[in-house]
Amino acid sequence: MHGLVNRSIQSFVSDTYGGGLWASVASECGVSLDGFEAMLHYDDQVTHDLLDAIGARLDKGRDMLLEDLGTYLVSNHNLEALRRLLRFGGVTFLDFLHSLEELNGRASLALPDLDMPQLSLLETGPSTFRLTCRWGFPGAGALMSGILRGMADDYGALVLLEGGVPDADGTCVLKIELLDSRFSEGRQFDLAVPTG
């Protein structure tokens, strides 16, 4: 697993539940307290162990945990970079949805060795979509649900999400209904990097 993913899980646990929980999870999984280097690779098993340990402590299932992680990734102010990179996808939430198919290509421009979920979007009606998520690691659907919820808030869109059950090879289909693309103000996004 790319260190960036493990590092994200580490930040999620420390920022959301505190350094104490991270310390105990790290020690249980044999991970150093400093955690992961975002630019290195780790065995997938480490990620599994980590998610199991966190889930056990918080009494949360794997999917719920990954969904929370997804939302955290795009809504936490410490991680502004990721949210900004996603907002480059388009002016409206609809543009953003359509930009998801490019997400993999965009990610590999920046980090060629990052294995991202493969996403494909199918328009099923005037405001309904099916997003197919494929990833080498199980849980892409749940993670993407969290990211979509977070980004909908960011754009100020009102969206209904319905997660499907992953099939045998881990492919998961999300049903998305865009109820109102200007439901709320959303968050400001400037192309220029904010200074200061």
């Binding site: 975002a38 630019m39 970079a81 421009l109 990097v193």
Partner: peptide, 23 residues
Amino acid sequence: IEMLYLVEANAAVTAELRQMNQR
């Protein structure tokens, strides 16, 4: 827009690498 995206992504990756090099 793709270029702006790349510049920003590149800066984020470089910053991360710089921190790792310092460590």
